[in-house]
């Protein structure tokens, strides 16, 4: 039996926050599987670099530089993108930020910004993308949650809340869009080697590592494998689920 090496050939994907880390890895993986990728990031040089990496390998990618937190702008940009690419099958809500602080000292802006990008951003993008997916009776929406939504993390009440919110959003949207053969799932990574986790102080890192049965952080490419799996046409019976990717840090 021949394996189709480009199962996403002819499909179009929008990956938010794809200028670096997990987002970039996902964009590259989806391209590898044959998709045309729209790379979104607020960091234009980083986003354009992801596009270049894809084009250097003979792929097709476009850069779009909007903030997922701006509702109206997202609706307009996604509509433009759908016209430009003549469709959209895959949305990966990956754009996310941290504004760490213990809650008793957290400023309202730190709370609001994280919710706005991480959670409301996912709403804004899913709202826009669901239109064409419902029309075509096909879609894959994947959002990034986090192990901290399950374990909690001191200093990250805002981040953890936004990532837990992604789970409720994923489950509800999965139920709404199921009649249209659109699957909606989430991925909850643990400690992954990216710019976001580079900032973790050494002592804390050592502590976390002790609790990871596999004894190492994960790689962005490993998260991308899970995202790619969920995007496959063959994964159409998996919906409303959270795939945990944490080296055994949390078993659930």
């Amino acid at each position: 039996m021949l394996m189709n090496s480009k199962p996403l050939s002819g499909q179009r994907a929008l990956v938010t926050g794809a200028g670096q880390g997990i987002g970039r890895a996902i964009a590259l993986k989806l391209f590898e599987l044959g998709a045309k990728v729209a790379v979104n990031d607020l960091n234009e040089p980083a986003g354009k670099e992801t596009v270049s990496l894809i084009e250097a390998k003979g792929g097709c990618a476009v850069f779009c530089g909007f903030s997922v937190a701006e509702y109206q702008r997202v609706q307009e940009e996604v509509k433009k993108l759908e016209k430009e690419l003549a469709g959209l099958e895959i949305l990966v809500n990956n754009a996310g930020i941290t504004r760490d602080q213990i809650l008793p000292r957290m400023k309202p802006e730190q709370w609001q910004e994280v919710i706005a990008v991480n959670l409301t951003g996912a709403f804004n993008c899913a709202r826009a993308a669901s239109r064409v997916m419902v029309k075509r009776h096909y879609g894959r929406i994947i959002s990034l949650s986090s192990v901290v939504a399950y374990l909690g993390q001191a200093g990250q009440a805002n981040y953890a809340a936004s990532k837990a919110g992604i789970i409720g959003l994923t489950r509800s949207l999965a139920l709404e869009l199921a009649p249209y053969q659109i699957t909606v799932n989430a991925i909850a990574p643990g400690l992954i080697e990216t710019a976001m986790t580079e900032k973790i102080p050494e002592a804390m890192r050592k502590e976390i590592m002790k609790r990871i049965p596999l004894g190492r952080p994960g790689r962005p490419e490993e998260v991308a494998e899970a995202a790619a799996f969920l995007c496959l046409p063959g994964s159409g019976y998996i919906t409303g689920q959270v795939i945990h990717l944490n080296g055994g840090l949390y078993l659930g």
Binding site: R131, V134, K135, E176, P179, Y180
Partner: peptide, 13 residues
């Protein structure tokens, strides 16, 4: 509500 929304999308087309 979903079906009604889909009907509107169909009428758009």
């Amino acid at each position: 509500s979903m079906d009604l929304w889909e009907l509107v999308l169909i009428m758009e087309d």
